[in-house]
């Protein structure tokens, strides 16, 4: 049988060369992600570590005052900043976790299919609100409201920031919890009903515990987002370097500090380096949260 298709040696060579070349090009492109992650870490480390040649690392981590621009006695303790971050993210999670979990339970067990299909994208649209917009809402509306409710001179404080950061993390938590709950087998709830449990007991005693690993991961990722949130805290947290004692006091989390001070410092001096060190602390915290979540999820999936 005569072959209609003749081999074209030259074209053949070109195709194979293209195949090999593309393999390597794609491999290099994909490796870029690893390079970037390491690059980010190395750059933070490079500038950040220089801080510690002048400021002892313990003074940096546990010092209770941050005042780098003081002429007489500059102080580099990030504890008030870390506490600010903790206040705001803890407050945000206190609001967003029950709220988000309720939405997730509603979406996965109570809502009709149609309602779910409309509501889920609506909740996810909240993630599309730029955080500068949330900050603006906080400045214009929430701050006066909080000031009036609690009789304060202004409403720019940890509470205000917590509420808005909660809104920012809500879609993450709600949608990941929903994934965890919807991923459960239908048989689980049916066998619980068969034992005479009500729907409410089933949700409380069977479904939520069964989805606990996923819900835990959702909370962790929400925490990561809350810690990294910058614009909201920059605009409404009140910018005070005093050590916070209550939610009604102004705070200045780590992210806000970096954003406020970085444009006013001399490139490469101690203050500049110390802000990279703050960035390094942020990076390590979020990295740890992600890794722990990852490990935890992998372990529970395997077992």
């Amino acid at each position: 049988m005569e072959a209609v298709v003749t081999d074209h040696p030259q074209g053949e060579f070109r195709r194979r060369a293209a195949d090999r070349a593309m393999h390597w090009i794609l491999r290099i492109i994909a490796s870029l992600t690893v390079v970037l992650l390491i690059g980010i870490f190395v750059f933070l480390l490079k500038s950040g570590l220089r801080t510690f040649s002048e400021v002892p690392i313990l003074n940096f981590l546990f010092g209770t005052r941050w005042n780098p621009s003081s002429f007489h006695e500059p102080l580099w303790g990030i504890l008030p900043l870390v506490t600010g971050t903790l206040f705001v993210s803890a407050g945000a999670l206190l609001i967003a976790v029950p709220f988000g979990l309720s939405i997730a339970i509603y979406l996965s067990y109570i809502a009709s299919r149609r309602t779910r299909e409309i509501l889920k994208p609506v909740i996810e649209m909240i993630a599309g609100i730029p955080s500068v917009v949330l900050g603006l809402i906080g400045l214009l509306y929430l701050a006066p409201l909080i000031a009036k409710t609690f009789g304060l001179s202004n409403g720019l404080n940890a509470l205000n920031a917590s509420i808005l950061v909660a809104i920012a993390t809500l879609p993450t938590i709600a949608s990941l919890c929903e994934d965890a709950l919807s991923g459960l087998s239908h048989r689980l709830s049916e066998s619980s009903w068969a034992l005479g449990a009500t729907r409410w007991t089933t949700i409380r005693k069977v479904l939520v515990p069964a989805a606990a690993p996923g819900i835990g991961a959702a909370i962790m990722l929400g925490l990561g987002r809350a810690i990294g949130e910058t614009m909201v805290v920059l605009m409404v947290a009140g910018n005070s370097l005093a050590f916070p004692r209550s939610f009604l006091e102004p705070v200045r989390p780590m992210t806000a500090t970096i954003a406020i001070e970085i444009r006013e410092v001399v490139v490469g001096d101690l203050h500049w380096n110390s802000l990279f060190a703050v960035g390094l602390v942020l990076f390590l915290i979020t990295f740890a949260i992600n890794s722990v979540t990852d490990l935890y999820l992998h372990r529970t999936i395997r077992s």
Binding site: L37, G39, I40, G228, I258, L282, F283, F287, N290
Partner: peptide, 24 residues
């Protein structure tokens, strides 16, 4: 490794990306 890097990059706070961009 690449997948791990991607998940971690997704968790890096945007202000840290800002620091990286500023330095690089």
């Amino acid at each position: 490794t690449i997948q791990l890097a991607i998940r971690n990059l997704a968790g890096v706070p945007s202000v840290v990306y800002g620091l990286f961009g500023l330095a690089i």
